[in-house]
Design a protein around this nucleic acid. Structure first.
Length: 264
DNA sequence: GTAGATGATTTTGT
DNA sequence: ACAAAATCATCTAC
């Protein structure tokens, strides 16, 4: 973090104007969920406040120094003042102001830390995916029921389509697989729904294919697709959705169509 | 306020 | 490194 670099060490001291100023930058709304852009904006805001405050302090320091010098000069008319004494005074003033600047640095750093932790918390906070996104993910899942393990490329594409991250896609499939397996019955309806959906897509694709080339005879869908995980084999009689999807796809084990209707 | 759904994280196994 | 399973934390509908 840019601001953290300059801070030397822990500095005790009560609340200062600096602390208030820095806190104002991160505080403000009682909004817990901080978006990334929000986070960056607030960070620059803190930085700006830090710099303007620093400048102000510098100016104040100079002003105060000249003020004291004037006072001393005035006093020198009534009593002798050695240059050493003046030097000492200036030294005291500068030390005081630099300690104040330390506090500014400290509180700015604190503000950044608070902002950071809030941002991290916000990321940890769960937000449901959009309906569209779950639609796309479910379409992929149910049309790859025999092997619902998207490759890295597939994950990337899904992530792009759903505007979520690849690891979120991985999380989603991890959760979906385990929850589907745990209670297939509960997902029956959903499975049927998406089977029908992919079937419709397939029909459209088929129609388009026929239009494109009437001479081509329909090729037999790939009979040799692997079933890596027995858990997801669709030959079990208990899986009604299989029957239904088979009806739609002409009796082949699992629909192998992408969401846009193309054959894999 | 609560139950169930859902996304994220942690733990464990390969 | 990746996946399953368990668990946590939040969201949503009631």
């Amino acid at each position: 973090m840019l601001l953290a670099e300059g801070v030397a060490g822990p500095e005790k001291g009560g609340g200062s104007a600096a602390a208030a100023a820095a806190a104002a930058a991160s505080g403000g709304a009682a909004d817990n969920s901080i978006e990334h852009s929000d986070y960056r904006a607030k960070l620059t805001q803190i930085r700006q406040i830090y710099h303007t405050e620093l400048e102000k302090y510098e100016q104040a320091c100079n002003e105060f120094t000249t003020h004291v010098m004037n006072l001393l000069r005035e006093q020198s008319r009534t009593r002798p003042i050695s240059p050493k004494e003046i030097e000492r005074m200036v030294g005291i003033i500068h030390r005081k102001f630099s300690s104040i600047q330390m506090q500014l640095k400290q509180s700015t750093c604190e503000a950044v830390m608070i902002l950071r932790s809030r941002f991290l918390d916000a990321r940890r906070k769960r937000r449901n995916f959009s309906k569209q996104a779950t639609e796309i993910l479910n379409e992929y899942f149910y049309s790859h029921l025999s092997n619902p393990y998207p490759s890295e490329e597939a994950k990337e594409e899904l992530a792009k389509k759903c505007s979520i991250t690849v690891s979120q896609v991985s999380n989603w499939f991890g959760n979906k697989r385990i929850r589907y397996k745990k209670n297939i019955g509960k997902f029956q309806e959903e499975a049927n729904l998406y089977a029908a959906k992919t079937a419709v897509n397939a029909a459209h694709a088929a129609a388009a294919a026929v239009q494109n080339s009437q001479a081509n005879s329909p090729t037999t869908p790939n009979s040799g697709f692997q079933m890596k995980d027995e858990e997801f084999q669709l030959d079990s009689a208990e899986s009604k959705n299989t029957l239904l999807s088979n009806m739609f796809t002409g009796g082949y084990p699992a629909p192998c169509y992408q969401s846009d209707g193309r054959i894999q």
